[in-house]
Design a protein around this nucleic acid. Sequence first.
DNA 1: TAGATTGTTAATCGATTAACAATC
DNA 2: TAGATTGTTAATCGATTAACAATC
Lengths: 215, 215
Amino acid sequence: MNKYHSISAPVIKRLPRYYRFLGELMEKGVSRISSRELSDMMGFTASQIRQDLNCFGGFGQQGYGYPVEGLHREIAHILGLNHSYHAILIGAGNLGKAVAMHMSFEKRGFQLIGIFDNDPRKVGSVMKDISVYHTDDLEKFCFENHTDAAILCLPKDAAAAIAERLYHLGIRNYWNFSHYDLSISHPDIIVENVHLNDSLMILCYRMTAVQDEDN
Amino acid sequence: MNKYHSISAPVIKRLPRYYRFLGELMEKGVSRISSRELSDMMGFTASQIRQDLNCFGGFGQQGYGYPVEGLHREIAHILGLNHSYHAILIGAGNLGKAVAMHMSFEKRGFQLIGIFDNDPRKVGSVMKDISVYHTDDLEKFCFENHTDAAILCLPKDAAAAIAERLYHLGIRNYWNFSHYDLSISHPDIIVENVHLNDSLMILCYRMTAVQDEDN
DNA sequence: TAGATTGTTAATCGATTAACAATC
DNA sequence: TAGATTGTTAATCGATTAACAATC
């Protein structure tokens, strides 16, 4: 059984933010911090910060606060950043290329081990030391290389078919940039979605809502 | 006063998803749908769907359901997708290029009117019919062109200084891909964050949590 | 009219905030 | 010891779900 049994989604979503702020504090040479000070920095209440951290253990010390470096390390461990999950990326278009080049996978618990595309002009090239293979070779590659997760950077129509093949290959973890809804067909998979369109529409809504207010 | 006064964040976040599913139903030629059927498709409860929609008005009909096309159009309007907000994009690296090329801004209430970068090799080029300018010309451009929003696709260190300049130019709406926390300094701005690192870490957490469970 | 399904109120559930005793 | 701040329980707040009357 997971030692952090059934942590609620809102708490988990805040963990990376804690991790980020603690990292910044470390860079600034701050060695200890109280929930109150963190609260001022981050915009969460001090109470919430203490509640969140206590889901995982008592990392602080009464009358003193939290040790910045220790807490940073603890959260890294909670997030599982010490892992090196093998990930493949499907779709080497603009978005796939950006994800491959831009992300520090190693710092986030992953290692990118292969990139796939069905454009013959891209196949055989190398991005960030990683070879681009043809999607036809997906099965071959996955038999030869243990693969933990797939990153989907392809259009919706292509995503459905590829997802089916990946599932069949035993891959159960997905970072999904496509607009295809993975979790509908297979309930036993873990999907983290990045829906850029949704995000942009939410910005549009908020801009519009404020404008209406002014009238 | 906004006619959709104080809609809660969870409801707003679900709107783009409704919009997406209704669009798919339209493509399939479905003309009406009940909250129950939508519930099965989308994984929300029927009750929640009815509650959500009723925040904005009674779009359904008892005994019949919701008209797919009408509801789709209504949600587009609620989201403000009929607008054409002028947006500029700062940072034409891999990520910025992907965002510029990949997104259908027009369908999401925006129009991309300029791209900025400080790399002289990029300045003067054209991406998707949009010119790339030097960041030095930001002020000049914004004086000459009405600008509603800025898309930040640059590294954290650069983001802080640029954000300050943009704020000074009167830009209050941001789609932020950088790891710089905009909202801290200026509380009067609207920021929609896309934190890819956070998203990847959450995937890592969930993969790790499941693994621990198995032991 | 009878069946279906919404709109809406009431009940439940969960997350956040407040308060304070424990303790460094 | 006195002051500060955590860990934790209790109170509040808000979101989701259930139920059902209204009505197409």
